[in-house]
Amino acid sequence: MKTSIPHIASNTFREAVRDRVLYNLIAFALLLSGAAILVGQISIEIEKLVVINLGLTAVSLFGVVIAIFIGIGLVSKEIEKRTLYTVLSRPVRRWEFIVGKFFGLAGTLTVNTFFMAIGVFAALFYVSHRFVRADALIFVALYFIILEFLIVCSLALLFSSFSSPLLSAVFAFSLFVIGSFSEDLRNFASMAHGVSRWLATGAACLVPNFSAFNVIASIAHEQPVAVQLILQNTLYALFYAAMALSGAVLIFEHRDLK
């Protein structure tokens, strides 16, 4: 069976590139090189710490912002501008459109992250003049960041499939913030009783759990990351993204275009 997913994905990527999304890399490079030069004055230990913490945090935040801002428009903008008419009147099934969009956005972010990663390593080399084995941990952090992007993309796409871009942005950002504190939310849940406990536990399962993806502070201190955690996080991100995408497909499949 022929599928149009790769075509839709690559067109989504092309759109992002033509919308000059990759220009964010310039801002990122400026931020990082500024930081590297400034902390160059301080002691060697702390400057490595600063570069890793600041660099990876920026990779993650820049990416999340891009994921949300592109993601929220992926479906709703096409409905609004009616560019979808000539796509969906071709042998393209609606779910393929959603999945294609998801891969296109995820691909955009991966490429973006790749360039940012080069920047982080360059800055690291600039301050410490060599690489040590522990620096390989940065790859794990980057991998987790990409997993995090998958979740954010799928959520932005989900909101995009039923609400306006502005509202979707609000939803997606709130979920990102809540998701970053979801362990606290689950702690709340475990402290509650009765019905509110059930509700809180349910909510805690539905909101994404970003806390487990944030290992930046610990790898900056050269703490190893358990293989188990890498495995579980991978599975979690895949299942969560699958869940959000299924939701998006369910909604979009039943939606009248404007």
Partner: peptide, 26 residues
């Protein structure tokens, strides 16, 4: 299908758009 007041991906050229649609139509 030609929709009424058609609108297309405006970041593409006519050739790219038709290329994309040709891919989608197989």
């Amino acid at each position: 299908f030609l929709p009424e007041q058609p609108y297309f991906y405006d970041y593409l050229t006519a050739h790219e758009l038709l290329e994309y649609y040709a891919q989608l139509s197989g």
